[in-house]
Computed example of a mutant assay.
Amino acid sequence: MAGQRGKEPANYIARLSEWADAHLTLIRNISTGMAIAGVILLTKSVKLTTKFTNALEIPIEFIEKNVKLRGRLHQITEQGLEIEHVPIILPIISSLQRKWRTDGLLLVRLAGVALTPDGTVWLQKELKPSQMMWFQLLGRKDSMLDCLVVVSKGRFSSICLNEEILKQGLGRTVRVEGLSHESRIYWKLHKRLLQAELKAVKRSKGIWKEATFFEKLREHINNNKYVQKLKQFATWLRIRL
């Protein structure tokens, strides 16, 4: 009996060794899976924290999934907003991010909006230099990004520039470039923009402001073909004299 009890520890160790050998492949597979998942997670983090300096650098899946990016305004031009992309900072890869900091601005257009010249002036007055904003990717054409742009207006409020421009009557709704007419987000967004434009129409704001009698009369006179010929003759006469 004593000899049998002395063999129990050895038998236990042998059984434990057999179990480990039998499950070694499973353990290795689990470890490999965790490593692969870690690589995938790191790759996604790298994409999210990469600083994009050109529209063509942005992965197509970002645009297809309508990802929101953060940026700092640099300039407003007739073509759109020039924005410096400000990526999310993660401590574990902050050293890599410092290496990615290069010059380059993204050209962003207000999706679904045809700006008037007064609309561009309004943006230049309302937006501050270096103002932070969020822009949701909806489409890309060459180096131009079509986006929904949101800016903060105080601590607890924000406005969508696309809608605000239409509410002020400083633009018209147009087709949202980059989105399929059959997609749910297209009709949802188009409805929002049309509702914003309707508010300007009801209030006769901006381009929807009805002209006065004298304004209509002046426009009619200026467009009259006889008046135009008279102006041309007067110009010709000044040159001759």
Rank of each mutant, 00 (worst) to 15 (best):
H23C: 15
L24T: 14
T25Q: 14
I27E: 15
R28C: 06
N29Q: 14
I30P: 03
I30Y: 14
I30Q: 13
I30G: 12
S31N: 15
T32R: 09
G33Y: 10
G33I: 04
M34I: 13
M34W: 12
I36F: 03
I36G: 11
I36W: 03
A37R: 08
A37C: 13
A37S: 14
A37H: 11
G38E: 10
G38R: 09
G38S: 10
V39L: 15
V39W: 09
V39T: 15
I40G: 10
L42P: 00
L42N: 03
L42E: 07
L42G: 04
T43M: 09
T43P: 06
K44A: 07
K44W: 11
K44D: 13
S45P: 05
V46N: 03
V46A: 05
V46E: 05
V46P: 03
V46F: 08
L48S: 08
L48Y: 10
T50L: 12
T50D: 06
K51D: 04
T53L: 04
E57V: 00
E57H: 06
I58H: 02
P59C: 03
P59M: 00
E61K: 04
F62I: 00
I63M: 00
I63E: 01
E64N: 13
E64D: 12
K65L: 06
N66H: 07
N66G: 00
L69V: 03
G71P: 02
L73C: 08
H74D: 08
H74G: 07
Q75D: 11
I76C: 06
I76V: 08
E78K: 10
E78S: 11
Q79Y: 09
Q79P: 01
G80V: 03
G80E: 01
G80C: 02
L81G: 02
L81K: 03
L81T: 02
E82D: 11
I83T: 00
I83G: 02
E84N: 07
E84H: 07
H85A: 02
P87T: 01
P87N: 00
I88N: 00
I89Q: 04
L90A: 01
P91D: 12
I92Q: 14
I93T: 03
I93E: 01
S94H: 15
S94R: 12
S95R: 08
S95I: 10
L96Q: 07
L96C: 05
Q97A: 06
Q97L: 07
Q97M: 11
R98D: 13
